[in-house]
Design a binder for these strands. Sequence first.
RNA 1: GCGGGUAUGGCGGAACUGGUAGACGCAGUAGACUCAAAAUCUACCGACCUUACGGUCAUGGGGGUUCGAUUCCCUCUACCCGCACCA
Length: 865
Amino acid sequence: MSVSEERYNFAEAEPKWQKAWSAGNCFAAETSSSKTKYYVLEMFPYPSGRIHMGHVRNYTLGDVVARFKRAQGFNVMHPMGWDAFGLPAENAALERGVHPGTWTRQNIGVMKAQFEPLGLSLDWSREIATCEPEYYKHEQKMFTDFLKAGLAYRKESWVNWDPVEHTVLANEQVIDGKGWRSGADVEQRKLNQWFLKITHYAEDLLQAIDTLDRWPDKVRLMQQNWIGRSEGARVTWPLQDAAGKVLGESVEVFTTRPDTLFGASFCAISAQHPLAVKLAATDAKLADFIAECGKVGTSTAAIETAEKQGYDTGLKAEHPFIAGAVVPVYVANFVLMAYGTGAIFGCPAHDERDMEFARKYGLAVRSVVAPEGEDAAASSAKIEAGNTAFTDDGVIVNSAFLNGLKVQPAIRAAIQKLESIGRGKGTVQYRLRDWGVSRQRYWGCPIPIIHCEKCGPVPVPEKDLPVTLPEDVTFDKPGNPLERHPTWKHVKCPTCNAAAVRETDTFDTFFESSWYFARYCSPHLTDRAFDKNEAQSWLPVDQYIGGVEHAVLHLLYSRFFTRALSDCGYLDLKEPFAGMFTQGMVCHETYRAADGAWVEPGNVSKDGGTAVRISDGAPVTVGRSEKMSKSKKNTVDPQAIIDTFGADAARLFMLSDSPPERDLEWTDAGIEGAWRYLNRLWRLAIAARDIVPGPLPSSMDAAPTAVSRQVHRTIAAVGDDLERFRFNSAVARIRELTNSLADLDRTASGGDAVYRFGIETVTKLVGPIAPHLAEEVWQALGHKTLLVDTPWPQFDPSKLEDDVVTLAVQVNGKLRGTISVAKGTDKAACETAALALPAVQKHLDGKPPRKVIVVPEKIVNIVAA
RNA sequence: GCGGGUAUGGCGGAACUGGUAGACGCAGUAGACUCAAAAUCUACCGACCUUACGGUCAUGGGGGUUCGAUUCCCUCUACCCGCACCA
């Protein structure tokens, strides 16, 4: 055996097999096939410049699924593309003077070249980039269709304004009151914006979560909470002025607790409520108060410390149930305009916030719910004297026709009464709000609208699509370059031909990612977004894989789009992703020098227990493991790893040890371990070259028989593990079998045959994980066809288990020995064998057992007297 | 504050629906091969007691159900994630 054969040469093998797969067009999805389809998709990457370890993990996970399903005989579609619009391109333009399009397309080139050495089974013939007019023209058409269908509209509204990025943010993009990218405190501004009516589908989006049985519970729960369904009532409170004069106006509040209406002591409206704005016109103090409310930040700290503030408007509101009773109307800083009606009624005895407000402004506290089984008068006295609201379930008191009812029946009774007297209505309220899609940015899809003074906003006719971005733009000033472009926005109105201007806002980039999975079905179609039949045949995506950070944003928008597109005739489908998997992050230790500077792992040496910076020998502190990020410099470059250990080692390490949904700690020792295994497998495999393949002899020695059973068991277990995303467990099973094969005595009867059988099987099983090595072994074993074209191995269910089983023998639940019995041995025989063990006799201390439990093929437990 | 999750050796993690806790790997220890190193191979590797045989303890803490609990129930603690004045 020559030296070159000792060691697996990944540097030669990996590109060789990548070329072979490419030449064989192995990974192109078949357009017409008798096979069952299987659509595997990883969330497409943003072309930021270079790939990172998170990408490697994401695409490795998907590739294992794709290759496994392909080997199982499915017609697999595993496409790839680029989420190519977005702000970083504009930042690059600002910093380096390069056009966003140039920067983006360059990055795509670089990253595509970086993905290639990973050996992913991608169908590159379906590649898309969302920044190209061939792609985004279709979503401009979609938008005009949404307009026609009433699913898109324009309204002036309060928006989350990011003062650093000079753009609007969706609610989903505001994290703790800060912009999700810039981290700047978000301000409230009033702007004309385009919205998509996601709330139209609120109930359906919520209900259908139950059908997503292959989604993580966590994600389903997050979406449920985000949609936030509450049942309650709208209650009308007619207004009187301070003198008691009926004004003929009313304020409508939303409440989930109409059962507590008899405890109402005030109404409060949002500072942005139309009534507040109207009153402020003639009330300078109120105007000041409203301005003050707008200034208070929405950051976590601000919310926690913000005291409840109110302004008494002097108006009174008439109670719906108590004739002649009125309550004061306040403008209050804690009432949200965007939820419900922007107005509430306050019942301090049974709501913490209302209690705080009532105590501050000296308002009445009237208890109307008493804890069940407690004395009503005593509990009421306690609540009304204290500062703590009683918010639990209980029995209604002091409430006329509601007295004696429990909370839920009382809510129903109160709603019925409100409806019968025409003072309210039972309703369902959602937390979900419509999706604002306008962004004041250049590098996005232009919103295809022309504003005409006479005709208003007019959709760009289909024949004029796409509206493309102008190339000659400058980024030397903040704000939107489209806005200040000299000619681009000046056009004729499509309806009346008068001078008009284009909409200069572009779509939120989540617009592009809300339908790209459908575009992959017909990536080159020019006249439509996708062919309905193609899309229907491929969708839903069978397995979608990505980060949990998109649990709400992208996944909810995509579910909405699928419904909206179906209602517009593009599709006939509700759910785009039948299976969803959220992967964990790739983490690494962090290192800091004495001056606080982060030190990259490549510049740290940990010899002798202390860590030092290699460049200057300065000591560094080893910090906790965190998600790899440029800011903490704890990144490891995938390219360097692939150059040193090869793609298969990187892939194997990504799948070993940590379950894929959990965070993965990157370690040098870990990747070296993966590398060692691959070499070991290679050595064991080439030792099987000279064994003539063939069926196993009908009679073999015990050891080869046992190993052959293990081969069947491993096929079954690995298949099950891959199906259930237990990749770490699959790797462990494969390694276990490898160990058994290494230990197998090949000189025993049947030894060689089982060895060959085992090696061939391990090669097939490891194929989805380390595809290059597997292919190289396959060839070394003398096969003339590609392993990727070889079917997944089958196991023989009759060979999974041994004829002899080992039973644990316990005395009083403690293990005292084991017995081996033939399969199917009856309980009595097991009991006899167990009792015969010397260790058992010793612990029984000569007395007969009180009881013996025999679980066939598992355990014998003897209860001593 | 509300909702959800996690807790197993020095480390990452196994253990299917209650049935031999610690698979597989990493790190470590001893040895073989080598002039030496790397690579490879062999053995050991939860804690404590014991020369050994063996025993006791052990799945975050405490309690319970059970012949038997990492697994089910109650309770406490710690950490992580999501939402956050949602009426």
